[in-house]
Design a protein around this nucleic acid. Structure first.
Length: 474
RNA sequence: GCACCCGUAGCUCAGCUGGAUAGAGCGGCAGCCUCCGAAGCUGUAGGUCAGAAGUUCGAAUCUUCUCGGGUGCACCA
């Protein structure tokens, strides 16, 4: 395995892409041969147990692969300005006996009990949220936490993990540095870590950003917290769920996948790692950067290559982040290249462009934006048709703080995304109707400059909350 | 079978803690660069808000039911 990783590195091949393909092939291999099916499933289970148990060659190989892929993931996410502080690993949750501590707590609080009859006989189970407990006989609806063979299920490990997150477990990870960002260190869990390290866990609130298919398992964890009397913690636990991203049949065909007749009739097809069916973030970002670069190259030949690339990168990231955030959380995103690769209309670059336009005005006017908003007297300048485009900018710009609060309350970034697009639209309309630099009336010019300054300030503020920055030029 | 989500213009989506002629982008059609950058702006066509009943002065929005689509309900993770 070490040799393979070295070969991939030497050949400039990507580990994550290699493993993506291999994972799909292996997943299909399990069920490919009817006669071998059971044996292969058993091999899969044995391998998983070996990895969980640790201290063997299989676990070492798994660690090598997982770490190599993880490093690639961090690089991908860093391209989108997403950084991590700490990477807790399931292997430490197991090896540091987090589950044993959680199990003891759960039994002590009466949440976990051993079933003595029925289909779950011999298992340790937990009552499911919202289910009726039968007055007699076993609660067949209960969730199995510990299997009859003594191994713990995923939900059990997740409960232990979340008790740690809230500082309720009485145990902690070991920590070691993993990846150095320009401004801070990303730590990773380990069994025996360094003495000096920052503290994680003991969270005031938890937001788990996981798609809606995990609604039930997430509720199990919250139910466990409530059952243990940690009502306060349960209230501060938010499953920030969102609907999945799927591919349109057209998009799937464009990517070269074979799509069945039946699937072609559907509105969208669920992505699947096991089938190797999906779009890779790096590929999409590469496409976006390439498309933006072509435009920037032709518009700004005066810039050097590094600046042009950086500009294209900001535009590409703005397009991608906005695309992911403009849909409300309960909408299934039917991914389509035509929409995702667009820089026009309701997109991040549309807003970035409005900001660049505003910046150009101040650069050419020789006025500092922050000085533009003072001693204003609108007088009768807001009257009539042309006045509308001025005061609607002020009205919308003044609402940002309120919109932010609304977006937080609903845990819905799309509210902010829709808002900033509307503000950019109104600014562009205003920009078209009023020619600021050539305005001869000093009072009016002052008002127009102030309007541009306020619009720009609020657009920049809203975009930065969405993790999008506007380039200097575009 | 049970639970949750969705169904609004040709397409993709907002609007849903009730309020006036239901909005945006894309696509279609017709225009706008001698004027701060056209990745922009303007106009136009396009909708029985899936259907039905109910609550209300008033329903895309709330309630119930029906139809259609999706996702969960593992001794997988």
């Amino acid at each position: 395995m070490k040799l393979l990783l070295e070969e991939l590195a030497a050949g400039n091949e990507r580990v994550d892409y290699y493993m993506w393909d291999l994972y799909a092939r292996v997943s299909q291999w399990y069920t490919a041969d009817e006669a071998e099916k059971e044996a292969r499933k058993a091999l899969r289970l044995d391998t998983l147990h070996a990895i969980e148990h640790g201290g063997n060659e299989t676990a070492e190989v798994a660690d090598l692969i997982a770490t190599a892929v993880l490093r690639r993931h961090l690089e991908t996410m860093e391209r989108l300005s997403i950084e991590y502080d700490f990477l807790p690993r399931e292997s430490e949750i197991l090896h540091l006996k987090f589950w044993d501590a959680a199990r003891a707590l759960m039994i002590e609080k009466g949440v976990l009990y051993q079933e003595t009859e029925g289909k779950n006989k011999g298992c340790w189970v937990m009552r499911r949220a919202g289910s009726e407990v039968p007055t007699e006989g076993p609660d067949e609806d209960a969730k199995v936490i510990v299997r009859s063979n003594g191994t713990v299920t995923y939900v059990g490990k997740d409960i232990a993990y979340h008790l740690w997150k809230f500082g309720l477990l009485g145990k902690d990870f070991g920590y070691k540095p993993f990846h150095q960002y320009p401004n801070h260190m990303c730590w990773i869990s380990t069994e025996h870590g360094e003495e000096q390290h920052p503290y994680f866990g003991r969270a005031d609130a938890i937001y788990n950003v996981i798609d809606s298919r995990q609604n039930d398992p997430q509720n199990n964890v919250i139910q466990a917290l409530r059952g243990m009397g940690y009502e306060d913690a349960a209230d501060r636990y938010t499953h920030l769920n969102y609907e999945m991203v799927a591919l349109t049949p057209r998009c799937a065909i464009e990517l070269g996948y074979t799509v069945s007749e039946e699937d072609q009739q559907r509105a969208y097809i669920e992505v699947s790692g096991r089938k190797g069916f999906g779009v890779k973030a790096d590929d999409l970002l590469d496409k976006l950067i390439a498309a933006a670069k072509v435009e920037v190259d032709s518009r700004h030949p005066e810039l050097d290559e590094a600046d042009r690339f950086e500009t294209a990168r900001k535009i590409a990231v703005g397009a991608l982040r906005y695309f992911m955030l403009k849909y409300s959380r309960n909408t299934v995103i039917a991914f389509d290249f035509r929409d995702a690769l667009s820089f026009e209309g309701e997109t991040g670059p549309y807003v970035q462009y409005a900001i660049v336009r505003a910046a150009n005005i101040f650069r050419k006017a020789g006025v500092a934006e922050q000085d533009a908003v003072s001693d204003l007297a609108a007088g009768d300048l807001l009257e009539g048709e042309s006045g509308v485009s001025i005061w609607e900018v002020w009205l919308t710009a003044s609402k940002l703080t309120m919109v932010i609060e609304q977006a937080i309350q609903n845990a819905e970034p799309a509210i902010l995304a829709k808002y900033v697009f509307q503000l950019a639209q109104q600014f562009n309309n205003f920009y078209h109707k009023h020619h600021i630099l050539t305005e001869s009336d000093p009072a009016k010019k002052k008002l127009l400059l102030a309007t541009a300054a306020v619009a720009k300030r609020e657009m920049v503020r809203a975009l930065s909350l969405l993790g999008i920055e506007a380039p200097e030029v575009m």
